[in-house]
Design a protein around this nucleic acid. Sequence first.
DNA 1: CCATTATATAACTAAGTAGAAATATATCTT
DNA 2: AAGATATATTTCTACTTAGTTATATAATGG
Lengths: 126, 126
Amino acid sequence: MSSHAARLNLVFSALADPTRRAILARVARSEATVNELVEPFRLTQPAISKHLKVLETAGLISRGREAQTRPVRLTAAPLAEVETWLGDFRRFWEQRFDRLESYVEEMKNKEKSRDRRIKNPKRTRG
Amino acid sequence: MSSHAARLNLVFSALADPTRRAILARVARSEATVNELVEPFRLTQPAISKHLKVLETAGLISRGREAQTRPVRLTAAPLAEVETWLGDFRRFWEQRFDRLESYVEEMKNKEKSRDRRIKNPKRTRG
DNA sequence: CCATTATATAACTAAGTAGAAATATATCTT
DNA sequence: AAGATATATTTCTACTTAGTTATATAATGG
């Protein structure tokens, strides 16, 4: 499996958890310490630390070191990768409609020329 | 938890699997039967059927009935939801840069006015 | 150095997931 | 009705995950 796919796996499964999405939303506003991230949730600190590790492995956050705290900051690059995937996908999907549309057009045209044939049949000589 | 969040959970975790993303890509091109979806993978038919159920629960595909086959077709609506989430997120994230930018601007201005103060100190009467 | 604070890690549990193999169901064909 | 084909469901296994509590590590302040 391509590492691109592997990264997408990590990013999508990181995003699949609402706690982690909330952490990202919080961190998007500004850096935060682990304890600041613990507060809004009814989860223990180790639970949050675990979520942070998942996010870090997915490349969605990175951590600094500042005195005792390990400030968490967003790294949005992997989200761009998701957007790319979505974009590629949308292109496929829309192509499909294009094909459907041109198929429908084709059918309409066939119908019209059939109608013409019926209403104005080609005269045969004689 | 809002049902919106619950749907995002389902969609993101459905997308977290490369087999399922491949199935979606295939189905984006055109409808396919289960067996057609089995072929390209080295997985058994029940495994694919299970993936299809996950995708269906996430609302990403729907199934018809045509003779013995259950044609699978894409339902792209949930992807729009993902795009919305990404968009909201990006807005947050960019606001952050805006704030940082205006902070930097502010600092530059302070610097400039400090420089002015140094170069052109306000005269005190006398 | 000692106590405190912030965070990480370990050990465990309960629940979920991906896969295979075997079997059941549904529809068509004859 | 019987056989064939397409798909779903069941059962089982190995692995992963989210959460807990308890404990370890790292950095700071006295």
